[in-house]
Write a protein that binds this DNA or RNA. Structure first.
Length: 512
RNA sequence: GGCCCGUUCGUCUAGCCAGGUCAGGACGCCAGGUUUUCAUCCUGGUAACAGGGGUUCGAAUCCCCUACGGGCUACCA
């Protein structure tokens, strides 16, 4: 298969929102495809109609739209190997299942749920280590291996409910290769005769995925580690179908684990841990329950992708911040780790911080303007942009901007009591009153002029910066935080500055 | 229970395949510096080879066992 064009697929089941593990799997597929100038395909695996959740499919589409990971082929893009929804491919699977039966590699099974239940109970009580429908138990069940041919014919004609099961060889070693874990060997005797074709005349995942990957000329299957146990079954299917020459390479990605405790990340974890598990906000159509998403939490898609790529893969260098192009360039399957990764919310914020600090002021100002508008605050775009430039490095998200910059838009409503207690001395009002005329006379009202005049005042009064500046900051900002004070003064203007100082002198209690 | 995968600082990880480094980086945390303050930023520090056996002059690296963690075990994907 060496000179085939690389083709990979992301094959979600529309049973709900994707979580970040799914997005990461898709991302690795995308990176691998692009690295090798290959195709990235979306295939919807909706062969279980009972688990279908409305909205899940469009959620998947919106997610990749937001992340900026376009598919080359898929349910929207189309492509020459369509359709890309398994429910629309119903007709293609049965022939392969029947072919396997005809060749003695699979068989019809007519067992009722009760009979299967009975079989399980018996296996349990007998303490047998081999469980399931397997090379032993199949001899005692109702199937085309045990029934006389006429009876089988009759049952099939009657359209009795039946399934097709793969006939696992009794005692064989199945050698498989995983690109991440290298060579693995499974004993066929420990495998069971999985249903490959259901009584609703739809294939199970195992058959559908093998048939479609073959028909769609998939060269590499990159999926979650939860599929590793069924790899020997899939390999056997390729062999039975006579497709071993075209069998794709397999890579099973380590799982993303809960941040605390153990276990793989699941839907409920997010709310408890205080970080999203979903890329986009999701509302459960049945319960109406809303789960938060990275987008809505304020993550940039580039940051989201970046933090995901580092969860399980590393470039072997110290680089941590990657553009999508850089990721494509650097990515390789052999640098994917083998052990599960725990998600670290702190590091996630750090990634967003890195992107935020590098973002264009104007772009950020546009986003911030929306927040300000919601707060009924009017300001010139150029003013907002200037504010953003001053405070963006202090924030992790755009939504942090307000707390970092409200004083550029309105006088403080309260004063930080800790700072008041520590830095608002008995003579502070007096000092500010003395400073007042200096500020009144300062012209032009510009940062550097303000600095020069105020510093001259401080020197003349022999006071020291802290004695003067911190009380002023308290008046203008309400606390000890914020960027350069002279810049703040320039920005809020002479009137604003003087008003706030006056207000502070009256309202800040002089306990000390 | 059975089958399979995994295990390096609190977290993400480099190093392992081709044994020899004070086991490196990042996040977090702590300290110092810068600053009019807070934050940013800079510097420094903290902290790990799951345990036990082998093989070897020498093991985080190779082998075995144990422990622990995880996944799978449906007519789900």
């Amino acid at each position: 298969m060496p000179d085939r064009k690389v083709r990979v697929r992301f094959a979600p089941s529309p049973t709900g929102p994707l979580h970040i593990g799914g997005v990461r799997t898709a991302l690795y597929n995308y990176l691998f495809a692009k690295k090798h100038d290959g195709d990235f395909i979306l295939r919807i695996e909706d062969t279980d109609k009972n688990r279908y959740v409305p909205g899940a499919e469009s959620y998947i589409l919106e997610t990749f739209d937001w992340c900026g990971l376009p598919f080359d082929e898929g349910i929207i893009e189309g492509g020459e190997y369509g359709p890309y929804r398994q429910s629309e491919r119903k007709g293609v699977y049965e022939q392969y299942a029947v072919k396997l039966v005809e060749e003695g590699k699979a068989y019809y099974a007519f067992d009722t749920p009760e009979a299967l239940e009975e079989m399980r109970k018996q296996q349990e009580s007998s303490g047998s280590s081999l469980t399931g429908y397997n090379h032993q138990s199949r001899k005692e069940m109702r199937n085309s291996l045990t029934l006389p041919p006429e009876a089988v014919e009759q049952l099939l004609d009657e359209e009795a409910h039946y399934v097709i099961r793969i006939k696992i060889p009794e005692d064989e070693e199945i050698h498989v290769r995983d690109e991440i874990r290298q060579d693995l060997v499974f004993q066929s005797s420990t495998l069971d005769d999985k249903v490959i074709f259901k009584s609703d005349r739809l294939p199970t995942y195992h058959l559908a995925n093998v048939v479609d990957d073959y028909l769609m000329k998939i060269t590499h299957v990159i999926r979650g580690e939860e599929w590793l146990p069924s790899l020997p079954l899939h390999v056997l299917l390729y062999t039975f179908l006579g497709w071993e020459e075209d069998m794709p390479a397999f890579a099973h990605l380590p799982l993303i684990l809960k941040p605390t405790g153990k276990g793989k990340l699941s839907k409920r974890d997010g709310e408890k841990m205080g970080f999203p598990v979903f890329p986009l906000e999701w509302m459960d159509p049945e319960t109406g329950e809303v789960s938060s998403g990275y987008k809505q939490e304020g993550y940039f898609p580039e940051a989201f992708i970046n933090l995901l790529v580092m969860l399980g893969w590393n470039p072997g260098t110290a680089q941590e911040i990657f553009s999508l192009d850089e990721m494509v360039e650097a990515f390789s399957l052999d640098r994917v780790g083998r052990s599960g990764a725990r998600f670290d919310p702190d590091k996630a914020r750090w990634f967003n911080h890195q992107y935020l600090a590098k973002k264009d002021d104007q772009e950020l100002a546009n986003e911030y303007a929306r927040i300000l508008r919601d707060k009924k605050i009017e300001a010139e775009p150029s003013y907002i942009e200037k504010v953003v430039g001053l405070i963006k490095e202090r924030a992790d998200f755009v939504r942090d901007f307000w707390d970092q910059s409200f004083f550029f838009f309105q006088a403080p409503q309260e004063y930080d009591q800790k700072i008041v207690k520590k830095r608002w001395k008995q003579d502070s009002p007096e000092i500010l009153k003395d400073l007042f005329p200096i500020l009144e006379k300062t012209a032009p009202w510009e940062r550097d002029v303000l600095e020069k005049n105020v510093k001259a005042f401080i020197e003349y009064k022999e006071l020291g910066m802290g004695r003067v500046m911190i009380p002023v900051r308290l008046c203008l900002v309400g606390s000890g935080m914020g960027p350069d004070l002279f810049t703040i003064m320039e920005m809020i203007g002479r009137e604003g500055t003087l008003d706030r100082i006056k207000k502070g002198i009256h309202e800040i209690p002089g306990e000390n």
